[in-house]
Every structure is written in structure tokens, then in C-alpha cells.
Design a protein around this nucleic acid. Structure first.
Lengths: 232, 232
DNA sequence: AAATGTTTTAAACAGCTGTTTGGTTCTTGT
DNA sequence: ACAAGAACCAAACAGCTGTTTAAAACATTT
């Protein structure tokens, strides 16, 4: 195999495991069975190699879990498909090998310590998915739903999905292994998240509770006579 | 001020900004106006200093945004308070100074690259909040709600809140600054998240949509005759 | 077979890292 | 005032970092 691609393949998991800085080119080159100077030769420097890895896994994951085509007649079913794709991208990795899920770890590190790469990643990878979610949620809501309302709901959807990836380490401590395996797989979570969003976008749902909430809040504020201060 | 506490204060933002490894003791000591050898003198080594910082910010944030006492008669209002506390802990920092929100960044880094510190952090900081959420959501649902259902809903709540912190960098690219300031403050988001969860926990809500979903899903699978394969 | 261009190699470089040393200054109790 | 201990300091240490060098090995073309 080409030394360049061997380097690319070896770098991915190591960058994901240790982050960009902590990952050393020596460790990567040893894993790729390649001389240390090769990263300079093929990618200019360490950051160039990193860019290459990011670009590669983005293509891979778009191919493995593409945004479903817009053929669903029922927006509810389309929402389910989108959520499932989202969760698959978050939690799953190569379907064939069943390998570790290092790709998403890498993207999360990029979100936490952004490099110039993040902007294009958002533009090409996250935004299309968010737009699709907005369009489906818009279809589920009444026509006079505000842009911001639809957007917040789309973000709530992504947020729930992302959470199960971000706090994997925390969930590992909070939730016993058996229950985790039984109830926190992609299928169960897809159904759960979709159900939450369907219940929320029901005509009688969100707006009713939001106005209820405003009333409640005003009552609290009124009885306390402190209109703008944090009450926690 | 004591050199020890000066060190502790200076280390927090720097650890949060660069992560444990990238943060150098030289930079921290320079910011604290302290000799390099002091970290060894007071904390043993760099990791000891890190532990000290984590312990300190946990105490600070618990004092600044305590879990509300269980005095609310209306579970809906209690849910709102819990969500607001959660979002405050995520998004806000020192109320007086209005400083940067570096504390949560640090906790997130700990979640992503866990050290032995994470376990106690989960036990003392996350778990009590999650238990409270479970109890409120259990009160909102009908009595025969399963444990796992309540837990998933509680995690969905936390997930939505956490998302606005985790993907701060992404939101900065996706959403224009003005709209972000107007609609993505703590108050707006608290109302939004609470409304979503109230709509979902309505008696007629979640379970209805979940069974609907199962029907839909079975239909899809049946027409494709591929029962167990990922259809994305 | 010779020449040209490409790829690979071991070694060295300069710089930064956390930690330690041994001595100095300051504080405290008697 | 003086001794004992705590606090602090500049300097050096050993190790690892990304990157570069210049030569060797290989491949391809003439």
C-alpha cells in the first residue's frame, strides 16, 4: 500500500485518541511503518496530515451514512430517518469491521479546539443536515411557525443525539453496562428522540406549553418582585 | 494574596483554554506571577494542580448555581427551575464579573479526555442533578412510566442543554451573531427546553408517538424485506 | 547502461516540556 | 535577638517535540 495512505490511515485513530497536540508524529509514523520524515514529505507538516485525515473521514462517513434522499411522503418517517442517520454518524463506525468509533471523537475534538478546518467542516457536513431537519420540522409544525422556533427545535434534535456521544464517558459511569447495551443502541435512541420531537411538534404541543410557561414565570417573578435577577 | 490560591486562580482559565497537556506550567506560573518551582512545592506536580482546580470550580459552581430546593408544588415549575440551573451552569460564569465561561470548558475537556478525576465529578456533580430531573419527570408522567423511559427523558433534557455549550464553536459559524444574542440566551433556551419536555411528558404525548413510530418502522422494514440491516 | 527524477532513510537540530536542585529570603515562635 | 521552619527563587536537567538535512535507495525514462 502507498506510504501516503498508510500514513493517513494510521493517523486517524491516533489523532482521535490523543488529540492533535498530544498525538506525536513519531507514534503515527511508527504505526504506519513509515519514516519520520515522510509526514513532511507528503503533507508539508503535522497540520497538513491532520487536514488530510479530516477530509478523508468526512468523505467516508458521508458515503457510509448519507443524508436520506427526500423521497418520503410522510414527514414523520423522514424525521425518523434523519435522526437515525444522525445517531449512526455519532455512535457507529465502519459497519463491516465494527471498529471503534474514533471518527466522531476526532470531529468532537475539532469542535472543542477549533482549527481553521472547522469552518469548512460545518459548511459541508453539519449545515446540510441541519437544513434538512429544519425543513422537516417546518413541515410538521403549523404554517406560522417562526424561523427561530424551527431552528431551536432542529438544534434540540441534534443536541439530544450528540449528547449520547459527548458524554459517553459520563454515561459509562452513570448507567450500568447491561442497561446501556439494552436501551441505548442506535435503534432505541432513534425511536426515543424521534418520539420526543413528534410529541413536541404536535399542533397542540409546544406553543401551548410555552405560553403556559410564560404565565408561570411571570407569576414567580411577580411574587418575588425581582424582575431581572437570576433566582438560582 | 496567597501564592497557592494565586496559582489556583490563574491555572483555571489556562487549563480550560488549552487543555491539560497543552497548558504549560510556565505559562500558568507567569500568569500567577509565581516561580516555576511553586507548582511542585504546593501541588506535587502538574496533575495535582489540575485536581485542585477541578475541585475548586466544582465548589464554586455549586454555590453559584445550586440545585433548587424541593419546595415547588407544581412539577412543571420545578422542571423549569432545574433546566434553568442546568443551562446557567453550562453557559454562564461568574455573575458579578461577567467573565468568560471557562469553567464549563474545563469540565467538557475532562469528559472528552477523562482523568481519574472524572468519576468523582460525575458522582458529586452530575448525578444529583440527574436524579432530581428523573424525579420531576417521573411526577409529570403517568404512574406506570418505566424507569428507562424516565431516564432517557432526563438525558434528553441534559443533552439539549449541553449541546448549546458543546457546539458553541459550531453555532458561532451557523447562526448569525445578532440572532444568537437575541434568541439563544439562558432565559430563551430555558423556556424552549422546558416547553419541549412538557410537551413530551404530556399524558397523550410520548407513548402515543412511540407506538405510532413502531408501526411506521415495521411498515418500512416489511416493504424492504431487510429486517436487520442499516437502511441508510 | 546511463541519467534523471522520485521516494526513503538515519541522524541531527533547535526548541519547549515538566521536574528538581541547592541556595536565598522571609516569617514565626521563643 | 536568634534559631527553626516555611516560602521562594534562578538555574539547570533530562526527555520529548516537530522539523530539516543530506545522503542513500529505488524507479523510470532516454
Amino acid at each position: 500500500m502507498d506510504a501516503r495512505t498508510r500514513l493517513l490511515n494510521a493517523a486517524g485513530p491516533i489523532f482521535a485518541l490523543h488529540g492533535f497536540t498530544r498525538a506525536t508524529v513519531r507514534e503515527i509514523c511508527a504505526a504506519a511503518d513509515v519514516n519520520i520524515a515522510s509526514v513532511g514529505y507528503y503533507f508539508g507538516d503535522k497540520l497538513g496530515l491532520y487536514r488530510g485525515v479530516i477530509a478523508q473521514i468526512r468523505m467516508e462517513r458521508e458515503a457510509a451514512f448519507p443524508v436520506p434522499e427526500q423521497v418520503e411522503s410522510d414527514p414523520r418517517r423522514e424525521l425518523y430517518r434523519l435522526v437515525r442517520t444522525l445517531l449512526s454518524r455519532m455512535l457507529s463506525s465502519d459497519v463491516k469491521t465494527g471498529n471503534d468509533r474514533w471518527e466522531m471523537d476526532l470531529l468532537l475534538r475539532e469542535m472543542q479546539s477549533p482549527t481553521p478546518v472547522l469552518a469548512e467542516l460545518v459548511r459541508d457536513y453539519f449545515e446540510p443536515m441541519l437544513d434538512r431537519l429544519k425543513s422537516v420540522i417546518g413541515a410538521l409544525l403549523d404554517q406560522d411557525a417562526s424561523t427561530i422556533e424551527v431552528e431551536q427545535l432542529a438544534l434540540s434534535t441534534v443536541g439530544q443525539c450528540l449528547y449520547y456521544r459527548v458524554s459517553g464517558s459520563v454515561l459509562g459511569i452513570l448507567i450500568p453496562a447491561q442497561r446501556r447495551q439494552e436501551h441505548y443502541d442506535i435503534e432505541s435512541l432513534s425511536q426515543h428522540v424521534t418520539a420526543v420531537m413528534l410529541a413536541t411538534t404536535d399542533q397542540t404541543g409546544l406553543r401551548k406549553y410555552k405560553s403556559e410557561l410564560v404565565d408561570m414565570n411571570l407569576t414567580v417573578l411577580g411574587s418575588n418582585a425581582k424582575p431581572s435577577i437570576n433566582e438560582n
